[in-house]
Write a protein that binds this DNA or RNA. Structure first.
Lengths: 393, 393
DNA sequence: GCTATTAGTTCGCGCCACGAACAAAATCTT
DNA sequence: AAGATTTTGTTCGTGGCGCGAACTAATAGC
């Protein structure tokens, strides 16, 4: 139950009912495709006549196409409907400190084209590099009308102004990424924090989360980010900075974090932490990368395994807090660490179980990195503009 | 943006628009009363004609009454509308380990009658004690039609079955409070955890939180409970156990908690913790109550002040986690500790500021205990059934 | 008493879902 | 092979509802 926000609501007009039912039908087609009009009526509870009018509208607007005929034991054969893969294109941009990936996807979340470029240090330079790539990728398939651009960032985005507030690993501050991209392409641009994007990807494309109303995405890389979906909705906080559980304290009077606090979770459970555990406090000439440590651990190197185990323990410590406090159905782990899940998973699960007797139902699962969760999240970001629940009252 | 839950949605009918606009008008009357039809049209964006039809409906259903005429600089004088205080009664029941309070309130959240009874140890006995009281309180004012009963509990309620799962301080488990009360009174009964109820009270009756979309209520008594409202909505978790931040770890390898974990927040920041700080580890013959410690601290007793300060410090430690992780607009503190807020408030604020540079915007405020936040929450629980945003799609 | 202004109502129009009736297309029965 | 049966999809009249123009009611200023 939600309270109506009297500072920001929408009254219903005569078209409101259609808006709502249209979205429902569109979503039913998305999740049951191919599906006949008669089945849509059965699933939705709408009359067949109403479904017919709505689908006709969706077909003329090219969201949906009529496909092959189906087959029923007896009676007239149904005409199957499915999402129009050939129409809508969505561009996703995943910005990471080293490289930026951009991709063109259709409504089903399948990537049609994908390319990378180095991420320039200066955000203005970055925009200049990006724009020609964007223009070319939208023209890969002429029949695809591009509906929008989704952007995933390692940083926080102000939820009202949609400006980048701060991206520590890029050292970008108060930068408006949205406007220049919108001006250059004429397409709507949606920005989102990477962890939030991953959570959205799971909500819209995940197989595990059909009924998950609460999930937390934990991105583990140089730092730790958390994306919260509670009551089927992304939690951004009014200033857009919710989900910074990476900077909650797990070690009293611990190591100083760049956020100014001491003993933050990400100081003990991030990739950088594992590298520190491996090298010890002594400054070495050539610092290994996290990939090195991970590879060594995979090969059975005892010291590397020890470092990874410590990191896994602390991942569990932080996740126990999330499990106890939020009791999500699902915690989704994103990052290189998932490559060693056979080793890491049990440690995390055990640590969480020891510390959170209250709630055993949360499943902690790794994402398949080949599914490009961040990039998929950018697609979801645009997709939800067309498939999300209509905002009413 | 919410994803439509295809396992549980509602299509729009021809009456849906009216449902939505009716709720909007009802809420505008609630928050702007007294208000004229013309002003309602201006605030809502609906046509005056539409507002007239809707208000006529609300008047015939006795939700709203027409009051005195207003006054405008020139032109016909408006007829003011306001909520019908004389019609709707809501019964609230606040169950606490020692005593249970029940009250009758009108739509404005004003208590008309209030009484208490000792809370029986056995839940079945408790029900037997309660039912005659309930029946009598609903008949205090014959003109008030009772719309429902709200119950606040020191424990967790399963969100689907609405059964009490576990109330540690009452030692009640898996008990169905709802059905016997509904059968005895014929009224709909809504159960809710006390911290959640307090959060609801603030959302629906608070003055501070007009625009607060995210707030956390922290109830501090024998234990610590947290009620989360994020995106204007209560977060219950799919199993109804979200918001157990009281059992997240704040001291590594700390004191054993009855939840099975070690070093839980409530072991260090609850009333019981303060008593422990005061008495020290030595077992004393007569253990002081928290009220005693609080009174002594108020009188300037150094040892008591020290105990309260330590408790306040740990309250800050836990709240820093909430601030960093959830970035709420407001943290609401409920409990006896607020009586010494002049002393406690600054300690909490300082501790949170030290540990959460990321988010300075959260206001941490005490509730006035005379406003009966738990009891008010039970009223909100029923109120939202009639004033909450209609569930659509 | 006339004019300007504001409040509230009446009424025709168009959007929309409903549901009965109907057309279309398949299988089953005889 | 022809009619009966079943299922799909369309057509059309009905009623709910918001819109907005026109209208009535009521008040203050001139």
């Amino acid at each position: 139950m939600r309270k109506i926000d009297l500072t920001n609501f929408r009254v219903a007009t005569s078209e409101t009912a259609r808006h709502i039912n249209r979205r429902i039908v569109l979503n039913l087609i998305r999740s049951h495709q191919p599906i006949s009009r008669a089945d849509l009526a059965r699933h939705s509870g709408l009359q067949r006549s109403t479904v017919s009018v709505i689908t006709e509208q969706l077909i003329t607007e090219r969201w949906v196409t009529e496909g092959a005929n189906g087959h029923v034991p007896r009676g007239r054969r149904p005409r199957f409907l499915h999402l129009n893969k050939e129409r809508v294109g969505i561009v996703g941009i995943n910005i990471r400190p080293a490289t930026t990936t951009l991709a063109l996807a259709n409504l089903d979340g399948n990537f049609i084209a994908q390319e990378s470029l180095p991420t320039a240090e200066d955000p203005n330079k970055f925009i200049q590099d990006l724009i020609p790539r964007l223009k070319s990728i939208t023209q890969v398939r002429s029949e695809l009308t591009c509906e929008g651009i989704g952007v995933s960032l390692p940083g926080r985005v102000d939820s009202t102004s949609q400006k980048l507030v701060f991206a520590p690993n890029l050292d970008w501050r108060d930068f408006d990424l949205k406007s220049p991209l919108e001006e250059a392409t004429g397409l709507p641009v949606e920005l989102e924090n990477a962890a939030n994007a991953c959570a959205l990807a799971e909500i819209w494309f995940g197989r595990r989360s059909e009924a998950a109303q609460d999930l937390v995405a934990v991105t583990v890389s140089e730092g730790i980010g958390t994306g919260l979906v509670l009551n089927h909705q992304l939690v951004r906080g009014s200033t857009g900075v919710a989900g910074e559980f990476g900077h909650t304290t797990v070690v009293e009077n611990g190591l100083e974090c760049r956020c100014g606090n001491r003993g933050c979770w990400e100081m003990y459970a991030s990739n950088s932490a594992a590298v520190r555990y491996y090298t010890g406090s002594k400054p070495t000439a050539s610092k290994p990368t996290f990939d090195d440590v991970l590879r060594l651990a995979g090969q059975g190197d005892a010291k590397a395994l020890e470092a990874i185990s410590t990191m896994a323990h602390y991942l569990g410590v932080g996740m126990a807090m999330l499990v106890t406090g939020l009791a999500p159905d699902l915690i989704l782990v994103i990052g290189e660490i998932t490559r060693l899940w056979d080793h890491v998973g049990p440690i995390i699960t055990r640590t969480v179980a020891e510390r959170s007797q209250t709630h055993a139902a949360t499943r902690i699962v790794p994402t398949d990195p080949t599914s490009h969760p961040r990039l998929l999240g950018t697609i979801a970001l645009v997709l939800q503009q067309h498939f999300g629940a209509p905002s009413v009252a």
